[in-house]
Amino acid sequence: MTTHPPELGILLDGAEPVRVEAAWSALLDRYSRLLLKSVGTLGGDADARMDRYAYVVGELRRDNFRRLRGYRVDATSGFGAWLTVVARRLALDHERTRYGRGDRGDGSDEARAIRAARRRLTELVGSAIDLEVLPDQRSDAARDLAERQVREVLESCLAGLDSRDRLLVRLRFEDDVPVRQIAVVMGFPTVFHVYHRLRAVLDTLRRELGERGVEGVDP
């Protein structure tokens, strides 16, 4: 169980307006840096960040601090961490309202990046296939078909992994998150542990591919 920051208590307890204004200012003073960092995770220049920040502050204040009332007394997280999540998601909503859902359209940069990352994973896991099953003399069509088949089997193998291993693979190869950051996010003690685990998971994937009839894969 966590404790509310004192300013939040005043804001939510319906104190007189002067005290509420003072508490709101104090809360912003205390958490503005975190809010700015949170909205900054979506990229963009200083103007874009300040635009998002203004939107988030407005939303937090709206309807008598309705969003802030969502922080429960029995919350597991600290208020600062909770606020960081809320700010990022509000800023993301704001971006989508203005520019559309960038991660849904097939033609977006992000969608292209995801496809590229999946291709990297296929190439990495199926490196033996590239060399042995897809020799240069094969036609482009045959090569495309074989690659698509490998990708489908690979997706199926990924689905069979333990969820933590699948998360590791997705972070590294689909989201292209650096290993150092993966260690922080997933709580690995060092980057070496991330590399060890990745290697073990990729070995498993190669073996699975071999067992499912994808030729040319060394178990």
Binding site: K37, S38, D103, S163, Q181, V184, M186
Partner: peptide, 23 residues
């Protein structure tokens, strides 16, 4: 983690928030 493994949106949130809090 089970959810994050299959939800790209929450995964991106988790990475971003963790790094913000750490910094």
């Amino acid at each position: 983690e089970h959810h994050l493994a299959d939800c790209a949106e929450c995964r991106r949130d988790a990475v971003a928030v963790t790094l913000v809090l750490r910094s």
